[in-house]
Design a protein around this nucleic acid. Structure first.
Lengths: 244, 244
DNA sequence: TCAAAAGTGTTGACATTACACCCATGT
DNA sequence: ACATGGGTGTAATGTCAACACTTTTGA
C-alpha cells in the first residue's frame, strides 16, 4: 500500500448519458453499528481518494477514474477546489471518518474533477459493486459536500457545452442526431426545435455523416454521425463578441 | 506566528487596469550569495502564501490580498489548482526554497485565484516595497510556474468577461465609455468599433449614466457612468443558445 | 483654428426562431 | 393502416459588423 497525503484528496463527478438523461456515478456508503447492526449511515458519495506521495493531482484523478470505471484516456477536467474547514463537519461524516479513517486529517482540501464517459463502456456493477448511476435531477442522499460538488460540476459542464463540443464524449462513437439533441436537451435542461438543431449541427464541419444507418430504437433508420476532434481543432475559430 | 500547512498554498493573480493596459501585480524575488554578493536569483513572483492551520482556502486568498494591497472585499475567484509534483523543480526555485524555506514540503499544491482591483486604490510601493505592476503582455522573468498561472488566469478572465460584467471591478466607481471600451479592448486583445460598443452598452440597464461630466484627459468632457450590481442581478436572464 | 476625443444612425449580412408537412418502417 | 420518429424549407425577427460626419473644448 502506498503512502497517502492525508490532507489533499481528489473527487470525481463522473457524468454519463443514458435513457435520454444525464447521469452521475455514485458509490454507496454504509455504516452499521457493530453490536446492534443498526444502519448508522446509508447514503452515497462521489468517487474520490487521497493523493499519493509523489503523485500529480491530475494523475490521482485518472487513477480514481480507472479504479471505479475501468476506463482510461477519458475526458477529465478540474473545475474547483473545496477547502472550507467545515466541509467534513456534519455529524454523520465525522462518524464515518472517525470509524473508517481515524488517522486522516480533519482539514482535507479536495480538488474536484468532472469527467464525461460513454456510459455504454462502463459497467459499474462489475467494476465496483457499490456503484450505480443516478439521474442528476434525482440524486439520493449524499455524503460530505458532494451535492454541492455535483451542482457546481453541472454548472461548469453547461458552460463548457455552450462553448465547446464536449457533449460527444458522452455518446458512443457513432450516434444519431436525435441522440445528440436529447443530450443537449438533458444537459442544458431545455427544449430544442429539431429542425433548427439539425441546421445548426450541419454547419459544424466536425460532425461527420456516415453512410451507415442506425436503427436506434426508432421505426425509420436514422443516419449515423461521428465527431471528429481533429476537424474541430483545425476549423475552430475563437470568435469573440461583446455579448453577455 | 501562526502555523502553516506546508503542502498547500494559495497564489493570487492580481489584475489592475492602468494606462489603457491590463496589468498584473508582481513581487520581486532576489537572492544574493552571502559571501560574494553575486545575484543568484532576480525575478518576480505572484503573491502567495501557505494556508494556515484552521484556515479556509478562500480566506487564505483574502488574507494574501489584504497583505499585499491593503484591500478587502474585492473581486476574487478561484480558477485552478496546480498540483504537478515538478512544479517547483527548476534549479533556481529549488535554490530559493532550500535557502529561504528549508522546512517546506517538496510537493506543494497551489490553489490559484485571480482578483480584479481598481488600481487607483492600490499603491503597491507603499503597501509592499517589492511589488509593482507589469503589463500582462510585457512580463518580466517569473519564478516557479507563475507564468503559466498568469496566462491561465487571463484565459479565465477573458471567458468571464465575455459572459458577466466583471470588468467594472477594474475601473473606478465612475467611468466613461471610452475607459470601459479600452478595458474590453485590453483584456480581449481586440479592437471594438466605438459606435457598436456604445449601442451594446446602452442596452445594458446596469450601466447607468450620471448627470456628471468627466474630463478624463480628453478635450471634450465625457459622460460618467456607474455600474449597478444590483440592477444587474435583477435583470440578468440566463440565455442559452446552441452557439459555440 | 485645429487637433483630439465625444456623440450619434443606417444599412446589409448573418444567425436565430417559429412553424408544418411528407417519408420510411416496424408493429 | 397507423403510429413513431426521420428528414427537410421558408419567412420573420433579432443581432452583429461596417461605416462617416458633426460637436465640444483645451492647447
Amino acid at each position: 500500500m502506498e503512502a497517502i497525503i492525508s490532507n489533499i484528496s481528489v473527487d470525481c463527478v463522473i457524468f454519463g448519458f443514458d435513457n435520454n438523461t444525464l447521469q452521475v456515478l455514485l458509490t454507496k456508503r454504509e455504516l452499521k453499528d457493530r453490536e446492534t447492526g443498526e444502519l448508522l449511515i446509508a447514503d452515497y458519495t462521489l468517487q474520490g481518494h487521497h493523493i499519493l506521495v509523489g503523485e500529480n493531482i491530475d494523475d490521482a484523478a485518472k487513477r480514481v477514474l480507472k479504479d471505479k470505471t475501468g476506463l482510461e484516456n477519458i475526458y477529465l477536467e478540474q473545475f474547483q477546489t473545496f477547502g472550507d474547514i467545515n466541509r467534513l463537519r456534519r455529524p454523520k461524516d465525522q462518524l464515518w471518518l472517525k470509524t473508517m479513517y481515524p488517522m486522516v486529517s480533519d482539514h482535507v482540501v479536495s480538488v474536484c474533477y468532472y469527467s464525461l464517459v460513454d456510459s455504454t463502456k462502463v459497467n459499474p456493477d462489475l467494476q465496483h459493486p457499490y456503484s450505480s448511476w443516478f439521474p442528476v435531477d434525482q440524486l439520493p442522499e449524499l455524503g460530505f459536500d458532494h451535492e454541492e460538488m455535483i451542482s457546481m460540476a453541472l454548472e461548469y459542464l453547461r458552460n463548457k457545452l455552450w462553448r465547446e463540443p464536449v457533449g460527444f464524449e458522452l455518446l458512443p462513437d457513432k450516434f444519431t442526431l436525435s441522440q445528440l439533441q436529447s443530450l443537449y436537451e438533458a444537459i442544458l435542461n431545455t427544449e430544442i426545435d429539431r429542425r433548427n438543431f439539425w441546421k445548426k449541427v450541419s454547419q459544424m464541419k466536425f460532425v461527420i455523416p456516415l453512410d451507415e444507418k442506425h436503427k436506434a430504437g426508432s421505426r425509420k433508420k436514422a443516419q449515423a454521425f461521428i465527431f471528429s476532434k481533429d476537424v474541430y481543432e483545425r476549423t475552430r475559430k475563437d470568435k469573440l463578441t461583446l455579448s453577455y
